[in-house]
Design a binder for these strands. Structure first.
Lengths: 226, 226
DNA sequence: AAAACGTTTCGTTGCACAGTGAAACAACCC
DNA sequence: GGGTTGTTTCACTGTGCAACGAAACGTTTT
């Protein structure tokens, strides 16, 4: 997980108006506000969110990066963008205060979404972090830097659930929890499994909720205390 | 069918990006920062400050007004613009924080400028406030709401200095001091006199400094303790 | 190996908007 | 009154930049 931050080529050119101009483009403003909860989102998702094509979004994200408003984290072929710091979120909030009508329209991070959501293709939120933690504690998973491998115990247990065992996992930083959750093919497969079984149910947006069966099942199979 | 005014008249159209876009234009940003001390400046001075023609400045100022970033006060043929509120200044500061180079380049209000500066055409800063205060205490000036009139004593004294006595003054709120100083024709004439005599010397920008002769003269003639 | 996917680069088009000169308007001065 | 000054309006030009299609690149998956 490499956190790169592009240095501004000509620093003397960057001033108040430049930063404001970066925010002052509807599509960019949408992407920035989407990141205000500190979550890191991939370029594609941001482009969808802003209602623009991936190419256009890429150009915008590059500018935001160069302007020091965003940080990026490359995960394979994905690039996860997040606000460069709390000061950026603060500035956005300050602007919202003086944006007449929208001070009422602005919504705080949804608690349900914080609890359980999809992070691209896998489970995130505090539930995702808890699950990952539990699998590590039980010895189903082994962590080597950012790689998460199934142990033999884990393989057996997952086979018992009818899951592919060839897949490998990857640690993904959860921005609401500031701890890792399980991503990569394994994370994707596991999440898909939980959805198929009806333990997790897609709610509005990326938010997820747990079914009654899911509560029992997750406690029984993965040792989660919910 | 002519589409009248695509400009944001409908407040529901105003959002984060619109406000940021207003600030994100170099000339407008310059004018806004010039107003960050809370001072109200006329359109002409703002256009000069931003290095643009009066027409262009007028267009910009109109937009800033419609966007709710500025307030305006008409005094005769002058229109004094000021920030619409403290929240605006706060947002501008928040933006300066995340403007890379300017976190180091950003200068707090210059102490010298805080001490003595021109406010359009008259003396402002703590020196301006002190002078106004002293003239009131000595009974040269009388205050009636925002009007500052010379008393007979004041007229005599100023005539002794070779100043016009027909002129009348106006109280102008000093934002660095949060107290009034002497403005209006009288303030202008008095300041011009101080400059002519070499008691005050124009420094960089609107900042002023006091000469040695000025220190003595101001103490002697106006009872200022410097 | 090939195929699928996420992302970026390139080339082009189109539009919003800052900028100006000329002129109108308004308030102040002598 | 006429002249001056501060500001705005109008009509027009030029350009910076967001947008997209097409294609290239790098990674992951089968």
């Amino acid at each position: 997980m490499i956190l790169e931050r592009l240095n501004v080529q000509n620093e003397s050119e960057i001033d108040l108006s430049s930063v404001a101009a970066l925010i002052g483009e509807p599509a960019r403003a949408l992407m920035l506000t989407a990141l205000m909860d500190g979550l890191a989102l991939p370029a594609g998702e941001l482009s969808e969110l802003a209602g623009i094509s991936p190419q256009t979004a890429s150009a915008h994200l590059t500018k935001l990066l160069e302007g020091g408003l965003l940080a990026v984290e490359s995960h394979g072929r994905h690039r996860y963008f997040s606000l460069a710091g709390a000061e950026v979120a603060q500035a956005l909030e300050a602007l919202m205060v003086i944006a007449p009508l929208h001070s009422s329209k602005r919504k705080l991070p949804d608690p349900a979404t914080c609890y359980a959501r999809t992070c691209y293709d896998h489970l995130a939120g505090s539930l995702g972090v808890m699950l990952c933690q539990s699998l590590l504690e039980r010895g189903w998973l082994e962590q080597n830097r950012l790689e998460l491998h199934l142990t033999n115990l884990g393989k057996n247990k997952l086979e018992g659930l009818g899951l592919e065992v060839k897949k490998t996992g990857r640690a993904c930083l959860d921005w609401t929890e500031r701890r890792h959750h399980l991503a990569g093919p394994l994370g994707k497969a596991l999440t898909a499994h939980l959805l198929e079984r009806g333990w997790l149910i897609r709610s509005s947006g990326r938010s997820l909720r747990i079914s009654e069966a899911g509560k029992k099942g997750l406690a029984l199979e993965f040792g989660l205390r919910l």
